[in-house]
Design a protein around this nucleic acid. Sequence first.
DNA 1: CCTACCGATCGGTAGG
DNA 2: CCTACCGATCGGTAGG
Lengths: 218, 218
Amino acid sequence: MAVRTKRPAGERTRAAILHEAVSLATVEGLEGLSIGTLASALDMSKSGLYAHFGSKEALQLATVDEAGRVFEAEVIDPALAAPPGVDQLVAVCEAFFEHLERRRFPGGCFFAGAVLEMGARPGPVNERIVAFQSSFIALVRQFVARAQELGEVAEDEDPDQLTFELNGIILAANMTFILHQDPRSLDLARQVVRRRLGVTEAGASGADVGREVFAGQG
Amino acid sequence: MAVRTKRPAGERTRAAILHEAVSLATVEGLEGLSIGTLASALDMSKSGLYAHFGSKEALQLATVDEAGRVFEAEVIDPALAAPPGVDQLVAVCEAFFEHLERRRFPGGCFFAGAVLEMGARPGPVNERIVAFQSSFIALVRQFVARAQELGEVAEDEDPDQLTFELNGIILAANMTFILHQDPRSLDLARQVVRRRLGVTEAGASGADVGREVFAGQG
DNA sequence: CCTACCGATCGGTAGG
DNA sequence: CCTACCGATCGGTAGG
């Protein structure tokens, strides 16, 4: 199919490894993810897989980066595409809920699990996870500040408090979804977001499509 | 010291093992917790420790139970001792924040981590974790319902939504504390709780003592 | 509660 | 990307 470039097979293999690694890590954890298990899941030899990374830590770092790319594509990009204001706050939450609902990873949100797993394990892997998570919170805070500038969030609200609450809603949605394995758990999360942000009807955002509505806003 | 009863030394040893096991599990995870590591942390032989439980799964179950006892003593009991109403909702959150601040476990809240670690690993250990977590949420929901009966939570609030939000605040506090390792992170969580519940001054609850205040309520 | 051991798997290496 | 291997550690057992 593709024209031969430098090492297309190797890159495809690497991508396939990381795709599997991120999924496996949401079940086994980043420490529990073993090179042998990962190799046999891909019908490869252990050392063949190992050669792509050179150490377990390098595999873990590459896995975190791959999870970051998935999160950007499925959660951050749709939120960035939404119009600034309260709609954007709804959009970032909604994109996260759909990321869960899609069951992209068997163990729920990669980063929610990774922060807790590696929180007491200092080192490069922990630092990379913390950096990504912190940048996501910072982005949500920007969305909140912009919404407040637009007058769609009350002036007496503290942006840090609202950001904290939205992060809490996201984490509670992830935990509830994992606990009950039921897509309806997310309906409650959606109601909480809309009530907290003063959005009256269901489909407040037209940015993150794939659901329906445009009920009472357009 | 103590009069010889049936097997006091064995029970003391078992208690010491579980105390260490819960702490270690918040760092290494319940799967990463190995019998060898646990034994050497206690200066015991591996098989000596193993004899107390008979299988790794039994050790994991006993560890979850021990973590449940700690959570009951440090979070649930203080909340039950608080007066019903909004004070009790503040008390349960405050008890959790102090549980974190006390750094009882190096990896933060045991159950927050355990739910995410074991969420995609069906089995008896997962079931025990889910049962405990669900019972805690159910208890918070009872507190919310009681506060609403007392007229301290608005009639148009949905108890499930408020319970979900309080759980989110707790989870966000845990994550933030782990991310920044800074007790001041919890100040923001405290502000969020009080603003969300319409409590104006800092020390709304006299039940969970050890902090101070009684500013504008008594 | 111990020493001594089992087969399996771990991360990693040699050499191709 | 492979086979074949390394020492260390895993959960678990025998026997005391």
